[in-house]
Write a protein that binds this DNA or RNA. Structure first.
Lengths: 241, 241
DNA sequence: TGTATTTGTCACAATGTTGTAATGTTAGCT
DNA sequence: AGCTAACATTACAACATTGTGACAAATACA
């Protein structure tokens, strides 16, 4: 997760309060004291969400939100408005400029965090739900199930039990078959970009995945390419006599 | 489940007519006389479905529908268009902006209700109050009852006693089976997205639901998917020894 | 008003998962 | 064959996630 949140708030006390709470909840926080400062920071920080005070000195919150909605890069960033007023007309303007939610001061830190999480959740693309089917294996991200579909007795699907990492690893391999992936590439794509993990760890997870697939006789789908990495392949191996 | 319907219609007579009929059919009704008013109400009321007049003063129906489809929160709300015209080009625009159905004026109240129910059934199964029956469990939203229907002795129904939240949770799960739901998704859909509770609270309610189902031997319908969430499934898991 | 039910949260237990290191195997080379 | 680097396998402790019972606050109900 570790989403980055930009707080645009002129009052230092509130800024500090929010900042503290968000950090405590695992967010990365950046602060701006004015819309002008925020304009600069947005392009530096590229936040995943912006907490925006309604009333700001200089450019006010609404104008800044409108500005954000114009930039190609910034218009996709969700905005949560912080407001002391509960005016109907405020709600309208807020929603019109594309605020995703608004929180009325005073608010509890927990409420704020909950709303942030809710907004982030809605923004995230429903991580490709498509069923992948290769080499007699079927992986369904929606139900989080891996089943064997090969044998004649199609009525009885056998389920393969995998841990979270093995599941992601298999998903990645099944959506990128017939290609060799170095350990580094797998770490980047399956574990995440900036994770510090030993290359050798991949071996272990490949092993775990293979063991799970052994039970259903599908472990030969994952092949080792010496000196390069691993490959998921349905093609028969060609032996030279 | 007493779905909430927002009527957006400028003519008071028609508004009243529809409103009266929907209330009679057990719906909760909110009314707006213009798109502008509706914009505000949508976020307050969070309706399960919107009945939208094609021709409105100010912002017209299509533009409003388009606006709704932009909001992350509102884009999932089903829309039924009300129109006096039967123009082909109208149909097209209606479908383009994502209307789920359209009703041509004048319409019979019965037809309108039928269409609403049809759309709800398709888009929001848990909001329609049809009886759900899955995996040997029968849940009746109208009478608020859950019974076991499995065993041969069909004359003797056993009732499962659930608290309100457990009931809603089970209802949601039973109308969305086989799919993994994260705690966050369950909070959004079962608790409502303006409610703020800890993620882990879901665990506790799952536990309560399971305990209630234990009594009738149905607790294995609710499965934990580690690192992902929970799933309601009547498919037997086949593990390899 | 008192009583029962429901609800959200917490603390701790139980369980599963993960990364690493140590050790065993294999493939490719001379 | 012997050597070596690359890979496989295993074990394990640290870590994360989930299960569970208890509790107090909120709520409904009589």
């Amino acid at each position: 997760m570790a989403a980055t949140i930009l707080i645009v708030e002129d009052e230092p006390a509130i800024q500090e309060l929010i900042s503290y709470n968000l950090r405590n909840n695992g967010f990365i926080v950046a602060c701006a004291g004015s819309a002008e400062q925020a304009k600069i920071m947005v392009n530096d920080v590229l936040p995943d969400l912006i907490l925006l005070d309604w009333m700001l000195p200089g450019t006010n919150g609404i104008d800044f939100a409108r500005y954000l909605r114009q930039g190609a890069r910034t218009k996709v960033i969700p905005i949560i408005m912080l407001t002391a007023r509960v005016d109907e007309s405020d709600k309208v303007s807020g929603l019109e400029v594309g605020a995703d939610d608004y929180v009325i001061k005073p608010f509890s830190p927990r409420e704020l965090v909950a709303r942030i999480k809710a907004v982030l959740r809605r923004r995230l693309p429903e991580a490709s739900d498509e069923i992948v089917e290769t080499g007699g294996l079927k992986l369904d991200p929606a139900t989080h199930r891996v089943t064997v579909t090969d044998r004649a007795d199609k009525s009885k699907l056998i389920e393969v039990n995998l841990g979270p990492t093995e599941f992601r690893l298999l998903h990645y391999l099944m959506t990128h078959t017939e290609r060799v992936h170095t350990r580094g590439q797998l770490l980047d794509r399956v574990w995440g970009d900036h994770v510090f993990v030993e290359d050798r760890t991949v071996d272990v997870h490949i092993r775990r995945l293979r063991r799970a697939l052994e039970d259903v006789g599908k472990d030969d789908l994952i092949q080792t390419v010496r000196g390069a990495g691993y490959r998921f392949s349905y093609q028969c191996e060609v032996d030279i006599p």
